[in-house]
Design a protein around this nucleic acid. Structure first.
Length: 205
DNA sequence: CACATGATCGCCT
DNA sequence: GGCGATCATGTGG
């Protein structure tokens, strides 16, 4: 068995980015403040090209992870290890890690090179007729698109995995809450850094 | 509906 | 050696 073989995306996530009116934002989109990027990623699409075809889904839930002062962030206290290294890249890179030994989490790196902040993609809404809860959670989102640690460190800008935004973004109300699953993070666990589309049936629970 | 638990392993202390 | 930026399944009320 080939250990390093890329995983196939769920066929039900097949999309035509052009028909959906999606375009790729410039690098500057990702170099902005992390909270700003986290808010703007709700409503954007995560897309992946696999064997000449595009697969993707509309992001409906994100979380901002800030720098050294954020106890919930992997870069807390200025930690810098091989796993976390992609977080230190310039905004627009992908940081993927494994949690609980079996689930992957995909993050969009933000800000300038050396500033280790990122946005966790927590949930997305599948196109077409796929079950609404197929990607309702960070692990499920990665599983559906076939994203693993293999892709950690990739540049999203112009890459086979990329972020796409609608040509005209509908004005959408954004709900805010504390982040999920970080009870160990002290006061940071109360910070309002989770953003989601409360009308979507694809938000995690 | 609200918990409770097991699965499973790379990473960091 | 301990522990997660999770999920599915099980129990009981």
């Amino acid at each position: 068995m080939i250990a390093d073989e890329p995983k196939r995306p769920d066929p039900r996530l097949a999309i035509d980015p052009r028909a959906l009116g999606l375009r790729e934002p410039p690098r500057g989109f990702f170099r902005r403040g992390t909270v700003r990027v986290a808010r703007d990623l709700v409503g954007a699409w995560i897309a992946r090209r696999w064997r000449g075809r595009w697969y993707g889904a509309r992001i409906v839930e994100t979380e901002a992870y800030l720098g050294p002062a954020d106890r919930a962030a992997h870069s807390w206290g200025g930690r810098r290890t091989p796993r976390i290294e992609p977080m230190y890249a310039v905004g627009g890179h992908l940081y993927v890690f494994l949690v609980y030994g079996m689930h992957h989490c995909a993050n969009v790196v933000t800000r300038r090179e050396g500033e280790a902040e990122a946005v966790l993609l927590r949930a997305a809404e599948p196109p077409g007729g796929a079950p609404p809860r197929l990607l309702a959670g960070p692990g499920k989102l990665c599983a559906g698109l076939g994203i693993t640690t293999r892709s950690s460190g990739l540049d999203l800008v112009g890459g086979t995995i990329r972020i796409l935004v609608p040509a005209r973004r509908p004005r959408r109300r954004l709900a805010v809450s504390p982040r999920i699953g970080i009870d160990y993070a002290g006061d940071a666990k109360h910070w309002p850094l989770r953003f989601y589309d409360e009308h979507s049936k694809s938000v995690s629970r």
